[in-house]
């Protein structure tokens, strides 16, 4: 019995060890090393790479990432909850409306981000249209700022919020709402005093998924943001490419990874691992 199991697990296990666990171990060890003369890593072990996280320059980027991810998550809750509610109340076309949320989510992330560049740039559709209508004289600076990054993050990760909320709505006991209506609650009262509180697990799960995705965002701030909106992901990439400071980049990666794991812990504890 176990022979087959061993052989069945061997290829995936081997790949995970070679291409995930060992690389992560290498990054971990690099985070305690010193930058080498040609950009590699050198021997003296140090905590300095972690201490540098508190350098005001880098610390502000870390704080910015936490704040941006928080704001984007908040907007996603406000936008995602009513959409999930709409889908769960749409009767026979539920699957269709759910599909409308899922399909763009799997479509090329790069293309979806580029689509916003197309809309928001100075000569983009929004500015061109507003100028043609005579609403504005000069193009509005819509791209390469925090606003554009926020739009991109919300647009990119909204489905992560809609899906878990939708699944808690589906499990909601409808008789509770009927009881509330019988006892004289108006629809809005029932919504805020029954539906929303009972959807808390879904809202929490969605918020964690959106938050960790935003925290690790790279492409969105890279393409839609400017120099003043870079986030942790961009800083990591920068250390491994142009700056060639691998040990510092490794320390940043580990902090990012630890933050993601800490945020996921409550979900895993609840047995709400979702995907696996």
């Amino acid at each position: 019995m176990s022979r087959v199991r061993t052989w069945a697990l061997a290829p995936a296990g081997g790949l995970l060890i070679l291409l995930f666990l060992i690389p992560m171990a290498i990054v971990t060890s690099y985070s305690w090393m010193t930058r080498g003369p040609y950009g590699g890593v050198a021997a003296p072990l140090t905590w300095e790479n972690y201490a540098r996280l508190f350098d005001p320059l880098y610390f502000s980027i870390l704080i910015r990432s936490l704040v941006y991810a928080g704001i984007a998550t908040g907007i996603c809750v406000l936008m995602g909850f009513p959409l999930a509610l709409f889908i769960s109340r749409s009767g026979g076309r539920k699957n269709f409306y759910l599909g409308l949320v899922i399909v763009p989510f799997w479509t090329s992330f790069l293309v979806r981000t580029y689509a916003w560049m197309f809309l928001l740039r100075d000569t983009g559709l929004i500015n061109t249209a507003l100028q043609a209508l005579g609403v504005i004289g000069e193009p509005l600076p819509l791209l390469y700022n925090p606003f554009a990054v926020m739009v991109g993050l919300v647009y990119g990760y909204l489905p992560f919020m809609v899906l878990p909320i939708f699944s808690t709505l589906e499990r909601l006991d409808r008789s509770l709402l009927e009881a509330a209506a019988d006892l004289g609650a108006r629809p809005l009262d029932a919504l805020f005093r029954i539906t929303v509180p009972l959807c808390k697990p879904g809202i929490l799960a969605g918020s964690v998924l959106v938050y960790i995705s935003c925290l690790g965002a790279y492409l969105t701030p890279d393409l839609l943001g400017g120099g003043k909106t870079i986030m942790i992901g961009n800083l990591v990439q920068n250390q491994f490419t142009t700056a060639r400071d691998w040990p510092f980049g490794a320390a940043l990666s580990l902090i990012l990874m630890l933050a993601v794991m800490a945020l996921l812990l409550p979900l895993v504890r609840r047995g709400n691992e979702g995907l696996l």
Partner: peptide, 13 residues
């Protein structure tokens, strides 16, 4: 759940 950028740099390293 590991951010893509972290997987990328880990593989590069």
């Amino acid at each position: 759940v590991t951010p893509e950028i972290v997987i990328g740099i880990a593989l590069l390293a």
